[in-house]
Design a protein around this nucleic acid. Sequence first.
DNA 1: GTGGTCTAGACCACT
DNA 2: GTGGTCTAGACCACC
Lengths: 125, 125, 125, 125
Amino acid sequence: MQLDFNNPKPIYLQMVDEVKKSLARGELKPGDKIPSHKEQAHLSKVNPNTVQRAYQEMEREGLTETLRGQGTFIKNDPELLVHIRSEMAQTAVQQFIEEMNGLGINPAETERLLSEHLYNGKKEV
Amino acid sequence: MQLDFNNPKPIYLQMVDEVKKSLARGELKPGDKIPSHKEQAHLSKVNPNTVQRAYQEMEREGLTETLRGQGTFIKNDPELLVHIRSEMAQTAVQQFIEEMNGLGINPAETERLLSEHLYNGKKEV
Amino acid sequence: MQLDFNNPKPIYLQMVDEVKKSLARGELKPGDKIPSHKEQAHLSKVNPNTVQRAYQEMEREGLTETLRGQGTFIKNDPELLVHIRSEMAQTAVQQFIEEMNGLGINPAETERLLSEHLYNGKKEV
Amino acid sequence: MQLDFNNPKPIYLQMVDEVKKSLARGELKPGDKIPSHKEQAHLSKVNPNTVQRAYQEMEREGLTETLRGQGTFIKNDPELLVHIRSEMAQTAVQQFIEEMNGLGINPAETERLLSEHLYNGKKEV
DNA sequence: GTGGTCTAGACCACT
DNA sequence: GTGGTCTAGACCACC
């Protein structure tokens, strides 16, 4: 769970995204129990209420299910994984394209830059 | 000047980015005068203080210079444009790669998705 | 026994209500034995403690009586059924009227809406 | 704003309902500003955070719109009023019917009881 | 002053 | 111990 406390994006939303990414990567599976908000709060060095807010948001989005007194679970919907994954990928691609567009960089150049960075191991910014 | 008031990124930083993008796109050129903060405030429907803060930030970053009584100007440095442009492009590319990485999507698939979205005009998600 | 685990109304109170409704409907009769708390807990997929608490509440309200070693029974009071039934009906009606009132819907419209929904089988909203 | 602190229904949801009812009754109109969370907190003798949560919920439901630093406003959608009103009325009617059904009271009797209570001024329970 | 986030700590219902 | 609500009080960005 990678949280950036200097990112203006609220922590609870970062947490939601992290769970979605874990799902997309296959680290979490439908039906899995996720840590209690207290436990996760301890792990992430964040206030339990903040975690709870993240969990609430996930439930609201239909990502998780809550059983009173038992815990919070990734919803056991076989289509969930593929949905989340394609939704997040699409958003990322779209955002990238808009950004490059905003910089006046044309599609060919965009593809070139991407390939260049993808394959020369420049993993550090 | 595209501002998103629900974006957690502070408005004044969004304004800085927008100026940089205008530069990258060639809409603004080194030496150009940018609107006074009052004028810009009116244009963007934003408080003058916020514009002021954006202008301060740009000056701090060496993007602009202010001439007392004459206004604020894009710095007249011929290399500025190319610097800004490549810096912003690189950041965007890097961010995109990290995002796709975080979703467990491999480079080949990343390129495929990009091309798909670049060339089929899907501007809306 | 319809329990809604997301209803903020405590489970044990929901159970009490369900017993009262069974009585009103005639499914339970004065003098009938109701399941032991263990049995009921299993049936309702609820913790035995919760059932215990529901039974306590019913006894407190004079709805049931417990005979040591024999179990819990609906009180054998011939007037019980009619009491419960009219009390619950009155509460429901009153609550409904207040709700419609709160929405600024007048009596005539209230009656019309009720009839409409009563007779066209719209069981799902 | 009628809040019942003994009602197990969370206060913030009671507040949402109260705003909806005010809308249905025409006391609030689309476009109206609603009190700041601090002000409302003071009026309702409730913690500002609780009010904020209610406001957030309303925004999430598309009932209100927020302008950073300016306040929270009822969404200016002319259809909003009729939507809310009919939605809430339908829910109330449906709930009432289910309740009476649960008590084994038939439609005719349900209508009779309603009329009786509607027109004999029994406003107190 | 206004909304938004976060922390800290309390109480409750249920397992 | 688990989720849910509430209070109290702090900090931030923006008007």
